[in-house]
């Protein structure tokens, strides 16, 4: 069962990756070609997921949109998870003044309004995909850092860690051999869920003019655009929403499997 879940997850992820890589070959239509006469047309044989407000084929836009959504999701989560884990480990392991300082920085980042940050980045760097990733990473690392630190605080007093420390294990060794593997469960969950959050947050940013600009499609932006038509054309939001859900499912199943493989104890 467990192994099967992992395989389903990997398979789905692989499918999404293929979708993104070969979008031009897989999309049934030009995702940019408009036909105002058929705005909001419901799904039919020619357009399996219906058409959006400008009469564009939603299926094709979802296929193309997977590129941006996957790219933003993966990039933001890998960068912020790495940065966050390093900073969190440093805070948790060294403790003292360093910990205090890092925690204060984290407080400042958390208390800072994300929208203001986004507007500032857009004003300084201009809109663009890279700037979306940058803006999301600036706030994204914080939760990873806090979780890592919190986990280390509990772990550092455990017998096996105390034993490792007593036997002369260095800080780096403690972090990589003891703390991080044992802290992996909440981190992987945060990463898997965070990715969904990031994909949705990208929509919020493109709403502010940062990042993906029309007419380029992204799942988040499609969800956002479909919102006013929830009552009259639910297919505008349903399909990107379902894709997002499938992607989250895939990431989670893979993440669970990975955790089981990483964590020696769960083999029991």
């Amino acid at each position: 069962m467990k192994r099967l879940n992992f395989r389903i997850g990997l398979f789905l992820l692989f499918l999404f990756l293929l979708l993104a890589l070969f979008a031009p070959m897989l999309a049934p239509e030009d995702p940019y070609s408009q036909n105002l006469l058929f705005g909001l047309a419901p799904p039919d044989a020619g357009h399996l997921m219906g058409r959006d407000l400008l009469g564009r084929d939603i299926l094709s836009r979802i296929v193309y949109g997977s590129r941006i959504s996957l790219l933003v999701g993966l990039a933001v989560i890998s960068v912020s998870a790495s940065v966050g884990m390093i900073i969190g480990s440093v805070a948790g392991t060294i403790g003292g003044k360093v910990d205090e300082f890092i925690m204060r920085i984290i407080d400042i980042v958390l208390a800072f309004p994300g929208i203001l940050l986004a507007i500032s980045i857009m004003a300084v760097l201009g809109p663009g995909l890279f700037n979306v990733v940058f803006a999301l990473c600036l706030t994204g690392w914080v939760s990873f850092a806090r979780i890592t630190r919190g986990q280390i605080l509990t772990l550092r007093e455990r017998e096996y860690v105390l034993a490792a420390h007593a036997s002369g294990a260095g800080t780096a060794r403690l972090i990589f051999c003891h703390y991080l593997p044992n802290a992996s469960a909440p981190l992987i969950i945060e990463a898997a869920f965070g990715m969904a959050g990031v994909i949705v947050a990208e929509a919020g940013l493109s709403f502010l003019g940062l990042g993906v600009q029309p007419p380029q499609p992204s799942w988040g932006a499609m969800l956002n655009e479909g919102r006013p038509f929830l009552l009259i054309a639910p297919h505008l939001t349903t399909f990107p929403g379902l894709c997002l859900m499938l992607l989250v499912l895939a990431i989670n199943l893979t993440g669970d499997g990975l955790r089981d493989k990483l964590d020696p104890k769960s083999a029991l």
């Binding site: 969800l223 956002n224 929403g241 499912l249």
Partner: peptide, 18 residues
């Protein structure tokens, strides 16, 4: 839980209202 996380607020809220 997957449903919960993948459901953006701006989609869930109006659905609940409806």
């Amino acid at each position: 839980s997957l449903f919960g996380i993948a459901m953006p607020n701006f989609w869930l809220g109006p659905l609940l209202i409806i």
